[in-house]
Structures are given as structure tokens and as C-alpha cells.
């Protein structure tokens, strides 16, 4: 089961931590939970149903599968802050980390037919800010309420 702990936050913001076991079956309920909290701040449309959903789902899947190798003894931690202007997310795992800058471009013609390698690319395209820590086992992402540029 996943566990939500409310944190002290600035006024007008929701600040909470979700901890979940490293099992992919928990991704969907956690994503639904966080999207519900964002809806309470009137986030709606593709920013909610596409951008934010992609951000959470891909970061959690990477943490569970690549980071923690689906070891149920290891936990994934998702820290969320939501206010009227933006959603901030930080996903961390207990894995050894990876080098996000050395991933091949999944949209290059020679990689289009590969079944893997689109998760981090989608994160970077659909979240407004994405930054990995030095070890590569935690990613911090920001999504603003209004898109600076259209995604297409």
C-alpha cells in the first residue's frame, strides 16, 4: 500500500509525501491520487491529463523498474507541492542512479523501432523543468499551470 504524509507547507499550497513499494501496480493509484489533489487546485485539461500524468507515471516507473529493480523491500518516495501557479514533484529511489544525459534520442530514425527508451524523453518534453541529482536516483520536476509554449 502507498502512504501519504502531509507536510508543513507555505500558505495556500498543498505539500505532501507519498511513499510506495517498488511494485508497478501502485503507479496507477498514486497517479490518480496526485491528479485528484491537483484538480482541487483547479488544474484541468491536457496540463493535468497529459503533462502532469506523464511526469508522475514515467518518473515512478523509472524509479520502480530501473532504480529499485522492482525489489519490494525498497521504497520510492514522491514529494509533491501544489499551489495555484505550479506543481513541484521530486521522485527518488534507492537505486544506484543513472546518467540521464547519455540516453539515445528515441525519435532518431534508427531508434524509432526500439521498444524502450521513451520515458525520460517524454518527461523532458512534457514537464517545464526536469533536473536529476548528481547520482541520478532522484528527479525534480516542475509543471506550471500555464504552458510557456505549446507542446507540439
Amino acid at each position: 500500500m502507498y502512504r501519504v504524509t502531509e507536510q508543513d507547507g507555505r500558505e495556500g499550497a498543498a505539500h505532501f509525501v507519498v511513499e510506495l513499494p517498488s511494485e508497478v501496480r501502485w503507479i496507477e493509484p498514486v497517479v490518480d491520487y496526485v491528479l485528484g489533489r491537483a484538480e482541487a487546485f483547479a488544474y484541468a485539461g491536457p496540463r493535468l491529463t497529459l503533462n502532469l500524468r506523464v511526469g508522475i507515471i514515467e518518473a515512478l516507473a523509472n524509479a520502480i523498474i530501473c532504480g529499485n529493480a522492482e525489489d519490494p523491500r525498497k521504497r520510492v518516495r514522491l514529494e509533491v507541492t501544489i499551489d495555484a501557479q505550479r506543481v513541484e514533484l521530486e521522485v527518488s529511489d534507492e537505486g544506484p542512479g543513472f546518467s540521464p544525459d547519455q540516453l539515445p534520442d528515441p525519435t532518431a530514425p534508427e531508434n524509432l523501432g526500439r521498444p524502450c527508451g521513451r520515458g525520460v524523453y517524454l518527461l523532458r518534453r512534457l514537464m517545464d523543468e526536469v533536473r536529476y541529482n548528481e547520482r541520478g536516483n532522484a528527479v525534480r520536476m516542475v509543471l506550471y499551470r500555464e504552458a510557456a509554449l505549446p507542446v507540439r
Binding site: L50, R53, V54, E58, A61, R114, P115, R118, G119
Partner: peptide, 17 residues
């Protein structure tokens, strides 16, 4: 269908092949 994630896209690519 509400959403397809990168793993779902990967399965479609693999099936297509």
C-alpha cells in the same frame, strides 16, 4: 483509452514489428 505510457508505446512498437 485514457492514457498510454512509454511502456505501452513500447509494446505497440514491439507488436507492430
Amino acid at each position: 483509452t485514457g492514457y498510454i505510457d512509454s511502456s505501452g508505446l513500447g509494446v505497440l512498437v514491439s507488436l507492430s514489428k
